[in-house]
Design a protein around this nucleic acid. Structure first.
Length: 689
RNA sequence: CUACCCGUAGCUCAGCUGGAUAGAGCAUCGGCCUUCUAAGCCGAGGGUCGCCGGUUCGAAUCCGGCCGGGUAGGCCA
């Protein structure tokens, strides 16, 4: 419940067990009883001891309970159920302790690098990317809250096939299916890119994401209908890579390469704008093109070769490729062909190969680094559009050479002790390969600190897909969910969903404001709250079958429910002030709380306090398990407890000052706890609902 | 074929390393706005925890085997 108190209780149990039974409980766990009436801390140790001592747990609990020498904080002990020892805390003192000011934590210790978002810069972001970014962002905020040093990286695959695909679409628009529409879109896209970094008059920045989304879908359809275009794809990818490697290119090739560079750069701005809307930010944007230009792979390759981790195949289907043999290792057991190609027979490096180099760099083990420059995204006045995750520092991106690089940023990024990659579960296999490669390159400790934060995908319910005008096959209609597919253009765009949320929030506000004008930030805040909670309230390994009704819900287990609790708490303090009553607790009141009669803390009030008290351990649990839904569910439980209290314990109309003080104290605690948690989940608290 | 994930109320999900009467939200039904905003609260109904076996004083939870659904096993990422 309270970390320091838990420790005292734990050592008391151990001491008494030793004295009474001459043995310690195999595992010492402290639980929280399911109901307030049952107490504040539950000790199930008697169940464990029953096995060892071969005596009924209830008996053991009774003996142990009376023998325990507990801290003064514990007011009462009871044996409940089959053998639980339940402790009741001194309510006023606990409350005073919980309300005592805590010094803010400054980050310290070794650095944890978290990579998330990582969207192919060739089209608008969809709701699957949203899950990635929100989970990653909440993880970042949680670890920071726990006092760790965290660096946020958003990797840009600016020289990948997906970028090449859209370049193909632009260069060969007339050969695509629906060529008329394709050509029109291509023209508009090129105009937008020509004007970049400025926007065309009247054309919103996100238009580019929408257009490329559609164009990419046409390219995808064309590939399946007319495979001859595939050769253009290979050629284009080669051009894009060659440019990054600094090779001389002919006129047309150079034009295509430049197109790819500008496309990626402009789409990244779309993504960053979308994420900024949600309050998601990054410290550095490492680019794949710079990994190529800086020859990171060459370094990684020699490390792997020196360690004997890779070998050149001379025969078989992988002849001419450099592969990492995985057949023997247990992690890859049972796989038919577990070997992973890192260098293709034509000499080019696979994505996984580049990822190995990137991973080694993240740990500072590559012996090579990027240069860095501030990300080039500015508004009309030349002010930066984005900041680093501290909200102050500039957002940097990697750079391949010194020209234009910021020398003061040199060496600032990477060199993490722990690296967490937020990537969906479908990429478990390549992630395992990367981890294994780091190990075999001679860095077992770095390998063990390579964490794949995996989560399940966001898919669409057939209903949602149909609602958006997609025609599903009969088989698909029967499925529980259908996978999104950029190549089919099947998916819900992040900004579209946000817009719908904002619109709905606006309607709801307008419906209750009685004609008063609605300030624009309110609907946006509610939309963000709804979205962030929707993306984080499920366990990581649960597929989210996206459903419009569910995503747009504002009642029950939702962001607005949390926000409403905080708004209500704020309203009470506001109202108290407007009536000339004491509102927020003074420091004298806080310390004086400890000696007040316990009677003012009835069970209902205490239930809320008890929930607040579990916050610290919830944060710890999230840090240990990397399961952010624990935090969200805790917030929901707290909000629920408070909404209940709100109806049973009026403060303005409290019967007397003493009662009011106890209630104000509980309110103070709820509000500060809610603010603390919502800040970490990234749910903004509006002034009013 | 192999590995991993999922299977709990009509729907969406919790259930923390085995333990208190299996809990929330949505939906349904019934109440509560002259009282700090009803995006709220109170109450009711609704469960063979996929199936079978094992371990245990005790299993939704651990183990084994099935069944159903999903994902991965590309010189794509």
């Amino acid at each position: 419940m309270i970390p320091s108190l838990n420790q005292e209780i734990a050592s008391a149990i151990n001491a008494s067990c030793h004295k009474l039974f001459g043995t310690l409980p195999p595992r010492l766990v402290l639980e929280t009883p399911p109901k307030v009436e049952l107490g504040d801390v539950a000790i199930p140790a008697a169940f464990e001891l029953a096995k060892v001592l071969r005596r009924p747990p209830r008996k053991i609990a009774e003996d142990l309970a009376s023998a325990l020498e507990l801290p003064e904080f514990v007011r009462e002990r009871r044996v409940e159920g089959g053998g639980y020892i339940n402790l009741f805390l001194d309510r006023p003192r606990t409350m005073a302790l919980l309300l005592a000011p805590r010094p803010p934590r400054t980050p310290e210790g070794p650095k944890t690098i978290i990579e998330h978002t990582n969207i192919n810069p060739n089209k608008a972001a969809h709701i699957g990317h949203l899950r990635n970014a929100v989970l990653g962002d909440v993880l970042v905020r949680t670890l920071r809250h726990l006092g760790r040093r965290v660096e946020v990286q958003n990797y840009l695959d600016d020289t990948g096939v997906q970028v090449a695909d859209v370049v193909v679409g632009l260069a060969h628009a007339k050969e695509l299916v629906d060529s008329g529409r394709a050509a029109a879109m291509a023209r508009e896209i090129e105009e937008i890119l020509d004007a970049f970094p400025h926007d065309l008059p009247g054309v919103p920045a996100r238009q580019l994401g929408d257009l490329t989304w559609d164009l990419y879908a046409l390219v995808g359809r064309t590939y399946t209908q007319d495979p001859s275009l595939e050769s253009e794809r290979k050629k284009t990818l080669h051009i894009v890579e060659s440019a990054a490697l600094g090779r001389e290119l002919s006129g047309e090739e150079a034009r295509l390469a430049r197109l790819g560079v500008r496309l990626a750069e402009a789409i990244v701005r779309c993504h960053l704008l979308t994420m900024a809307r949600l309050g998601v930010s990054y410290d550095v944007l490492p680019r794949e093109s710079d990994i190529l230009a800086r020859r990171f792979w060459d370094r990684a390759f020699s490390l792997l070769k020196e360690a004997g981790a890779v070998q050149l195949e001379t025969e078989g289907k992988n002849a001419g490729c450099w592969v990492m043999k995985l057949e023997g290792s247990s992690e890859f057991a049972g796989m038919e062909d577990a070997d992973k190609i890192l260098v293709r027979s034509n000499g080019t490096v696979t994505y996984t190969g580049k990822d190995v180099a990137y991973q080694l760099w993240k740990f500072g083990l590559l012996g090579s680094d990027f240069e860095y420059e501030p990300a080039p995204y500015v508004d009309i006045d030349g002010q930066p559009l984005f900041h680093a995750s501290d909200g102050i520092s500039p957002l940097y991106r990697s750079r391949h050479d010194e020209t234009g690089a910021d020398p003061s940023a040199r060496g600032r990024f990477g060199k993490g002790e722990t690296v967490i990659n937020v990537i969906d579960v479908r990429q478990s296999y390549p992630q395992k390969v990367v981890k294994e490669a780091v190990r075999r390159a001679g860095f077992p400790e770095a390998s063990s600190r390579s964490i794949h934060f995996s989560y399940e995908m966001v898919a669409l319910t057939p209903a949602a897909a149909t609602e958006m005008g997609f025609e599903l096959s009969e088989d698909d209609q029967k499925r529980a969910f259908v996978e999104m597919s950029g190549r089919k253009g099947l998916g819900v765009k992040a900004d579209d969903l946000l817009d719908q949320l904002v619109e709905k929030a606006h309607e709801q506000i307008a419906a209750r404001s009685g004609g008063e004008p609605v300030e624009p930030g309110r609907a946006e805040a509610i939309a963000i709250g709804a979205l962030r909670v929707y993306m984080t309230r499920f366990s990581r390994n649960k597929v989210i079958a996206f459903d419009f009704d569910e995503a747009l819900a504002f009642e029950g287990d939702t962001g607005p429910y949390l926000q409403y609790a905080a708004v209500r708490a704020n309203n009470i303090f506001r109202k108290l002030a407007s009536q000339g009553l004491a509102g927020r607790l003074s420091s004298g009141e806080r310390t004086g709380l400890a000696t007040r009669p316990a009677a003012q803390c009835d069970d209902n009030l205490w239930d809320v306090v008890r929930t607040c008290a579990r916050t610290a351990e919830t944060f710890e649990k999230v840090g240990d398990s990397l399961e952010v839904s624990f935090l969200v569910r805790h917030a929901l439980a707290l909000a629920q407890a408070f909404h209940h209290l709100y109806h049973t314990h009026p403060i303005l109309q409290a019967p007397d000052d003493a009662t009011r003080l106890a209630r104000r104290a509980a309110l103070e605690l709820v509000l500060s706890t809610l603010e603390e948690i919502l800040d970490v989940i990234g749910v903004p608290i509006p002034e009013r609902m």
